[in-house]
Design a protein around this nucleic acid. Sequence first.
DNA 1: TATAAATATATCGCACACGATTTAATTACA
DNA 2: TGTAATTAAATCGTGTGCGATATATTTATA
Lengths: 151, 151
Amino acid sequence: MDNHDNNPLRLENFLCFSVYAASHAFNRIYKPLLDALELTYPQYLVMVTLWEQDDQPVRSIGEKLFLESSTLTPLLKRLEAAGLVKRTRDPKDERSVRITLTAAGRELRQKALDVPRCVGEVAELDLSTIKRLIDDLGQLRDNLEANASRK
Amino acid sequence: MDNHDNNPLRLENFLCFSVYAASHAFNRIYKPLLDALELTYPQYLVMVTLWEQDDQPVRSIGEKLFLESSTLTPLLKRLEAAGLVKRTRDPKDERSVRITLTAAGRELRQKALDVPRCVGEVAELDLSTIKRLIDDLGQLRDNLEANASRK
DNA sequence: TATAAATATATCGCACACGATTTAATTACA
DNA sequence: TGTAATTAAATCGTGTGCGATATATTTATA
């Protein structure tokens, strides 16, 4: 009755697969909700970080979302083209590009407010499980990140 | 001291973000390990399903990995080009394409055997946490999948 | 048994995501 | 102070992922 046998190559035993599949399942739930905001899921995450704190350099957004500039630069250009953010070279350090919300970008927050509630409803997990998952996954991510460099 | 406050738009409160970030962290860990096998992570998952059961239609692989044909078809063509699998129309049902391992594909399993152990080491979680995560994430995914259709 | 509906892949367009590299600006330091 | 090292974005190539659609085959049904 225990699904976790000792075969090292069984899909069921792969924590990474559980994470991978859950991530895609989330994406499929978010897509229709975010279509209404005309945002993709990674774009939504960027907007969330900017709603938390406006006027950040690309590097700072990347650190929070664990994304590289090669991912963020085109994404931010799309958000700029959509009129939600502005990209400006920092006069104090011309290497840095600061991302600021436009009025439209700030206003979008209202429409985004009930997205988490909608997602929470379909996830159908009690709050204690959710908190435990967030904590476990955070620890997992930290361990993986910490060990990634010394491989 | 509790990170889970009531702001509905705080990144820290997003279970989906925890899953998303952990998924990418896993990917970054897997990449160097799978480079030795000349496989990407999704290609590796396909090989795992075939090592578990050879000779499957595309549809069956898609159901196990929660992937669409639009993702699998090009991926399987790359595996075929790499000489690891063969794609053959099922003579009993010409709509279906059956995927079978080549000799090289079967032999690759040996080299893949210690990948999970390597990943397990850097994850640094005790077995009970891992099992709990797999179960919680499986439940989450099932709930999300079940509610995806009736949205 | 024609024709409609369903099924299995394939194709296309778009948007990530990353590693490797490049460019430009700043900082360190000999 | 001038050159090297570092830092911040951007660019490029490859490979996912998905929704929408197309094509071919099989099944259902009028």
